[in-house]
């Protein structure tokens, strides 16, 4: 296609976008809603995953060492445990640290403090807190640790096994549900988008016929519509970005109150450029491809 024709088809796309104000407004509104749904699904997913990850990070195996095991030996064991593939991190906590923390935490409880005084010595044991890379791996890690260091320590895993298992099932369930809902929202948005563009083209179907009668090639009829779809997508993505900014900052105080770990506004501010680029790319790609698919169907008839 000659450059002049390409320029003309682009111009025509802009002209249609500008002149058909009502149709443009409706299409852009519905497309924005579709993009907004995707954006909100993504941000909700981020919130849910943050909460779930935080819960997951609080699960660990505590290896409690006998008081006669020297600190050096425990630190050696720490190094060995860190080498296990499924282990994400190992934290060393000395019995003194545990004792001080306990004292600090329960300094206002007279009964507990009295009990400690009766015991007269530090009743706590030096521990290694082992976090697995995946909740499913705790069982294997625990079996290995108990077998390898059976005379030196005991682990709390068997005691908490039931709770960890339930938590694991819950985490898997929440992840699957949020991923499934996110996927459904995205599919609904894409279908909504496709249908909106198809309806806007339906209003113009007679014009395509006239254009062909006047001698326009299929490509010459298609391109203005594709450019129009591009403009719908671009405008919708700008509206969506504004709507998302308003949503994020308006809901942030409430979310922080309920879920202090979920920092959506901070995440949004930190990644604002990436989010804007993703929304624009999504809008433009959705608008352009939807228009192309829809017009192709009309011209095939």
């Amino acid at each position: 296609m000659k450059t002049i024709k390409l320029f003309r088809t682009f111009n025509e796309g802009v002209q249609n976008f500008r002149r058909d104000k009502w149709l443009t407004a409706v299409t852009v509104m519905v497309m924005s809603l579709a993009l907004y749904l995707i954006g909100v699904s993504f941000l909700s997913g981020f919130g849910i995953l943050t909460v779930v990850n935080n819960i997951e990070n609080r699960i660990n195996i505590s290896m409690n060492f006998d008081s006669d095991i020297a600190e050096n030996e425990i630190l050696e064991i720490k190094k060995e445990v860190e080498k296990i593939q499924e282990v994400q991190s190992v934290i060393y906590i000395s019995r003194e640290d545990i004792f001080n923390n306990f004292n600090e935490q329960y300094k206002d409880s007279r009964e507990i403090m009295k009990t400690l005084e009766v015991i007269e010595e530090n009743p706590f044991l030096t521990s290694l807190l082992v976090t697995a890379d995946n909740v499913e791996h705790y069982e294997n890690i625990n079996t290995y640790l108990t077998k390898t260091y059976k005379n030196k320590m005991y682990s709390n895993y068997d005691k908490n096994k039931g709770t960890i298992g339930e938590l694991h099932n819950f985490i898997v369930f929440i992840r699957n549900v949020s991923l499934g809902l996110g996927a459904i929202m995205i599919i609904i948005s894409i279908l909504l988008n496709l249908n909106t563009i198809r309806m806007s083209l339906y209003a113009n179907r007679k014009e395509f016929e006239i254009m062909r009668l006047v001698g326009a090639s299929n490509l010459y009829v298609k391109l203005p519509t594709v450019f129009e779809g591009f403009l719908y997508g671009l405008t919708s993505s700008f509206l969506t970005i504004v709507a998302l900014i308003i949503t994020v900052y308006a809901t942030d105080p409430f979310i922080k109150k309920m879920l202090p770990d979920v920092k959506i506004a901070e995440f949004y501010t930190k990644h604002i450029i990436e989010i804007c680029l993703i929304v624009i790319a999504l809008g433009v790609v959705l608008g352009t491809i939807s228009s192309y698919i829809a017009i192709r169907r009309y011209l095939e008839k």
Binding site: Q15, D20, E207, E209, I210, M211
Partner: peptide
């Protein structure tokens, strides 16, 4: 069969 969103000039020019 004129194109409704185009002016008289644009309709003729389209050909």
């Amino acid at each position: 069969k004129l194109l409704p969103k185009k002016t008289v000039f644009e309709n003729v020019a389209y050909a």
